[in-house]
Write a protein that binds this DNA or RNA. Structure first.
Lengths: 347, 347
DNA sequence: CGTTCTTCGTATAACGTTCTACATTTTTTT
DNA sequence: AAAAAAATGTAGAACGTTATACGAAGAACG
């Protein structure tokens, strides 16, 4: 009585392109052609093959595909997962990808440059067809080096001179201007900016752009002499400590523009603790228009950079690059102000 | 003058295992052996090969690897990206993975079952070595089917009878009990639960477990006759509408336990709008201990299910499964209460 | 001083696709 | 009716690894 030896009976054998070819009674190449919508396929053949594919539930192996052609996967690299505007970006990417047969895989960098680079390498090693990097911390030369190996679009990375990769941004300079203009319109002249710790972020990062916009708006208002910027550490508990120090200052300004809702909301919370009334004692405008800002408990005026639109634009740009475009594209979307209680507007 | 034709001069040729072999003056098999720490490698050989690898910056192709053996990648599937406890889980996973040569790739399902299934299939097609599914909505049979093809750990999916895959959870029943017990201790007897819309979530989902815990705690307190559960729709604007209806009810309870901070915080915001004082008029306990709950503007008491620990445990469980364990494991971690202003405690 | 073990290194067949050449058949043109 | 062109299908060589099977060279043994 011969016993059929099967080491792993659980893992049933994969349906490969060969299985389909045999089932449909055609060649492997024919099945491949149908899969790729290649030229030279009769209606008859297509029907037979798609029938078999359907019946067998065939799914091509991405690893095998990667060895030759496209994987129909794009990599999405996020610096840190906590920034409230990232989910919007993801939605935008998925939205554009949904009708295509592309899919997105996400890597999370946690702000560590080394991990970030190694995730990009992994994505390349996976033969992903293109990469969207959100707010990368890496220097331009390194990104350019990666861009030689795979199409890349950077979001939140203002480098309009980049030749080998594309960028998609909202106009962060203009966004900061809008915030400051709104404060000026409310009659505030004593406006400070709360920015990110000096060591974080390079010249092309969003936070530096927002500083430029802030300064320019102050300059236009004739306040260039007093356009102070405070730098807040990124990590707890120094971050909260810096907020409290700011609030306790005797020369605390009447209004403040925060580079990000994350900081603005922490500031509002600290203000509540210390009995600083918003907006009576201190007007606040944030950036990102996060869902938390919209809570009436928080009620924070904020600059909206539609993350969804950024994600959509980045994806479309990447797909066109994958399709063969070689001259760089640098998109700039327009942000807008969402007015809320933390900023009382006269108009 | 012979001109070397190069169609794509930009994309410099990849350093493959063959490049390394040639550079080190050994065979391809030798390099592979070194890479895999396989038996039969002399110190001399190892030195030569690692030297060349270093010098050339060789990185093995994951696609090629996937065709034969492991890819050293695990897939992390998230139902939706907005739940505030997910970043914690990601941190936990990355933390455990960091010292190993494994990496995580994340897929986001957006709550659509079809997308969720197709992402899992993609991860399998990518030959990922194992999958961590966070709060999957798929029925057990389908997950079991996938588990036949790849090691799977489900987080936030209470199915201790699952034989072919592992589960890691906090004890959601106990968590709900702790919340209700805390409210009881403060003297409240009139306690309602705000749960997820009836159609969302199956019997094994966290939200149903929390309902069970709520009911049991009420029963223990002799309040079984009045343990009402309201179901709140998931999506705006019906969600906010339901909150307002709840707050406006003439028979509104004195205390409420929300299945998730997401809902609890929206409730607090609506309460502020409508002049319902917390906790004087209404005590609230949430679930997840999100960062927003910790803001003093919000100050929401909440059940902490350490997402980080869940992520760590899930990863360790998955790795052991990948290493060959075949009998199922079902971990249960203990949640704890974080007391804040939304719940005044006498003790 | 043959044998038999070890130890070390290599040759090569997979793995599941894509895609270039080609072979065959059908259609169109002259 | 012959020649040319177009349409359809197939064979088979990549792609970059892993892992099995095996050969060669020393070491240990009787």
């Amino acid at each position: 009585m011969p016993i059929k030896e099967k080491s792993k009976p659980a893992k049933r054998d994969r349906v490969t392109i060969r299985t389909v070819a045999a089932h449909a009674g055609v060649s492997v190449a024919a099945v491949s052609k149908v899969m790729r919508n290649a030229y030279g396929v009769s209606e008859n053949l297509r029907a037979k093959v798609t029938g078999s594919i359907e019946e067998l539930g065939y799914r091509p192996s991405r690893t095998a595909r990667g060895l030759r052609g496209r994987t129909f996967t794009i990599g999405l690299l996020l610096v840190d997962i906590r920034n409230p505007f990232l989910p919007e970006v993801i939605d935008g990417v998925n939205g554009v990808l949904a009708p295509s047969h592309y899919q997105a895989m996400i890597g999370v960098g946690e702000g560590r440059m080394q991990l970030e680079a190694s995730l990009i390498e992994s994505m390349i090693d996976y033969k992903m067809d293109g990469l969207i990097l959100v707010a990368p911390r890496l220097p331009t030369e390194i990104i350019a080096e990666f861009a030689a190996q795979v199409p890349i679009v950077a979001v939140g990375y203002h480098d309009p001179k980049a030749k080998t990769f594309d960028t998609v941004n909202t106009d962060d300079q203009r966004g900061a201007e809008i915030a400051v203009e709104a404060l000026l319109k409310c009659g505030y002249r004593d406006i400070e900016m709360l920015s990110l710790g000096a060591r974080e972020g390079h010249k092309v990062s969003v936070v530096r752009q927002r500083e430029i916009g802030y300064r320019r708006a102050m300059l236009c208002a004739g306040l260039s002499s007093s356009a102070p910027i405070s730098h807040i550490p990124v990590h707890s508990p120094k971050r909260e400590e810096a907020m409290r120090v700011f609030l306790a200052r005797s020369d605390r300004p009447r209004a403040v523009f925060c580079w990000s809702d994350l900081d603005a909301i922490t500031l509002l919370s600290a203000a509540a603790d210390m009995g600083v009334r918003v907006p009576e004692d201190l007007a606040v405008v944030g950036y990102d228009n996060s869902t938390t800002a919209a809570l009436s408990l928080v009620n924070l005026a904020s600059i909206d950079q539609s993350g969804r639109e950024l994600g959509e634009a980045a994806t479309r740009t990447l797909l066109s690059r994958i399709e063969g475009r070689s001259d760089p594209e640098h998109l700039l979307l327009m942000p807008s102000l969402v007015n809320r209680k933390s900023l009382i507007r006269s108009g």
